Simulated scan of single mutants.
Amino acid sequence: MTDTTSLSQLKQAALDRARAGDWNGAADTLHAVLAQSPNDLGSLLLLGDVSHSDGNIQAASDGYRAALALAARTPSLPAPVQAGLQRAQTRLVDYASDYAARLDGLIPPSERSARFNQSLDILLGRQPVYLQEPRRYYFPGLPQIQVYDTARFDWVPEMEARTPEIQAELRAVLAEDQASFRPYIERGTGHLAAQDHHLLDNHDWSAFYLWKDGRKVEENCARCPVTTAALDRVPLDFADGKCPSVLFSVLKPGAHIPPHNGMVNTRLICHLPLIVPGPAWLRVGSETHHWQEGKIVIFDDTIEHEAKNEADETRIVLLFDIWRPELSEQERTEIATLLGAIDAFSES
């Protein structure tokens, strides 16, 4: 008997046992088929169906998911197979719904902590896992936190309290000299140009810098003394030639900053919203934050994030970056030295 005939006989035996209601026998035979031919789509679907009929939801889920993954790479499937795939997809949705309902009965949603609730969304496939993916430098061992609780930062209340004064300085700059605002992504700077061409040299997202790439813009700071002084107690992540950047960040009506990741994971990005004329939001990983004037938001920009101004008028925040609080003073010094050296090497 040839291997091909043997495999054909096994498949027929599995089908016969399934028709006879011998779920265990059919499943055992299908495992033998898949040991020889792991990409047999029909056998994967049948294993899902057999396991479903036997009440083995986990095995059915495994079979159906494997079949759907294989089908995604297989063109021109016949109609009966497509019907089986649709059945598999429907049952997976039903399984997830039943599982979620059982979990809701175990711990009601209103009684869950935010992080536990997020873990359930990941478990149930409602959202993907978002992790730090810096485009330039990765420092190991830092927690994967999308948006930080501002209560952890003792400088936040004082900074928020100075919002009206900072707003006044911003409005004075806007009234005097809008030409000082430059596109946030400029040709040759390497910010997001590789990922987001439509904002390159585009004033839909523009900036008025107080610090740029670690260097103080003296003229602009002189025009905004209150804002400059307010940052004195903030742990800006100074590294020569690299950071911080402190700027009034402008997002025009309808402007969308598509999903992207930041350069280094040793910093956090802070927004102090100054002008929020309507709906405007920031998504970091699985969390969506709606800006509120005078309320700081602190997030890890190496986790995928995006932003959009859905209002009919311009949105402006004071944007600045700080050291991650988990880094020791020694680590901050080491990182600052390294980042400065990387830029020096790049220019040599």
Score class of each variant (00 low, 15 high):
residue 36 Q to E: 14
residue 64 Y to M: 09
residue 171 R to F: 11
residue 246 V to T: 07
residue 167 Q to S: 12
residue 151 A to T: 13
residue 83 A to L: 15
residue 44 L to V: 07
residue 127 Q to W: 03
residue 128 P to E: 08
residue 315 R to K: 12
residue 262 G to S: 10
residue 32 A to C: 06
residue 304 E to V: 12
residue 315 R to D: 01
residue 249 S to Y: 05
residue 283 R to W: 00
residue 166 I to K: 02
residue 163 T to E: 12
residue 152 R to Q: 12
residue 14 A to N: 04
residue 146 Q to V: 01
residue 268 L to M: 11
residue 158 E to P: 03
residue 339 L to D: 03
residue 83 A to S: 14
residue 59 A to G: 07
residue 181 F to E: 06
residue 35 A to S: 13
residue 282 L to A: 04
residue 117 N to Q: 15
residue 322 I to A: 03
residue 188 G to W: 04
residue 88 A to R: 05
residue 150 T to D: 02
residue 43 S to Y: 03
residue 103 L to G: 06
residue 218 E to A: 15
residue 24 N to L: 11
residue 89 Q to G: 00
residue 221 C to G: 00
residue 142 L to C: 08
residue 81 V to H: 02
residue 178 Q to N: 08
residue 56 N to K: 14
residue 252 K to M: 13
residue 262 G to K: 04
residue 121 D to W: 08
residue 210 L to I: 07
residue 197 H to Q: 14
residue 93 V to I: 09
residue 174 L to C: 09
residue 12 Q to H: 10
residue 142 L to M: 11
residue 252 K to N: 13
residue 315 R to P: 00
residue 169 E to Q: 12
residue 116 F to C: 10
residue 118 Q to S: 12
residue 28 D to L: 08
residue 300 D to P: 05
residue 77 L to P: 00
residue 75 P to I: 04
residue 204 D to E: 15
residue 1 M to K: 04
residue 267 R to K: 12
residue 164 P to T: 10
residue 329 E to Q: 14
residue 37 S to F: 04
residue 118 Q to P: 00
residue 152 R to T: 00
residue 128 P to F: 06
residue 86 Q to A: 13
residue 82 Q to V: 14
residue 47 L to H: 03
residue 343 D to R: 14
residue 143 P to C: 07
residue 7 L to A: 01
residue 260 H to Q: 10
residue 6 S to G: 00
residue 36 Q to V: 06
residue 40 D to L: 02
residue 158 E to R: 12
residue 167 Q to V: 15
residue 294 G to W: 02
residue 40 D to K: 01
residue 210 L to H: 05
residue 21 G to S: 10
residue 90 T to P: 00
residue 100 A to R: 14
residue 29 T to Q: 06
residue 101 A to L: 15
residue 157 P to M: 09
residue 195 Q to N: 12
residue 198 H to L: 09
residue 296 I to V: 15
residue 185 I to C: 07
residue 23 W to F: 12
residue 186 E to R: 15
residue 249 S to A: 14
residue 284 V to P: 03
residue 17 R to E: 13
residue 90 T to A: 11
residue 78 P to M: 01
residue 154 D to W: 00
residue 187 R to F: 01
residue 216 K to F: 03
residue 5 T to F: 08
residue 346 S to P: 00
residue 69 A to T: 12
residue 334 E to S: 13
residue 92 L to N: 01
residue 248 F to Q: 05
residue 162 R to D: 08
residue 310 E to I: 05
residue 139 F to M: 06
residue 244 P to M: 05
residue 269 I to F: 01
residue 89 Q to L: 04
residue 279 P to L: 09
residue 3 D to C: 00
residue 2 T to S: 15
residue 50 V to M: 07
residue 145 I to M: 09
residue 232 D to L: 07
residue 47 L to E: 05
residue 109 P to S: 07
residue 66 A to Y: 00
residue 144 Q to K: 08
residue 218 E to M: 11
residue 347 E to S: 15
residue 122 I to K: 14
residue 339 L to A: 05
residue 54 D to R: 10
residue 73 R to E: 15
residue 213 D to A: 15
residue 160 E to I: 02
residue 303 I to K: 06
residue 18 A to N: 09
residue 94 D to M: 08
residue 182 R to G: 01
residue 269 I to D: 00
residue 11 K to W: 01
residue 117 N to W: 01
residue 276 V to I: 15
residue 15 L to E: 09
residue 338 L to C: 07
residue 122 I to W: 09
residue 30 L to V: 02
residue 228 T to C: 01
residue 302 T to N: 05
residue 143 P to A: 13
residue 329 E to M: 11
residue 22 D to H: 02
residue 196 D to T: 14
residue 164 P to C: 09
residue 130 Y to N: 11
residue 188 G to N: 10
residue 154 D to C: 00
residue 165 E to V: 04
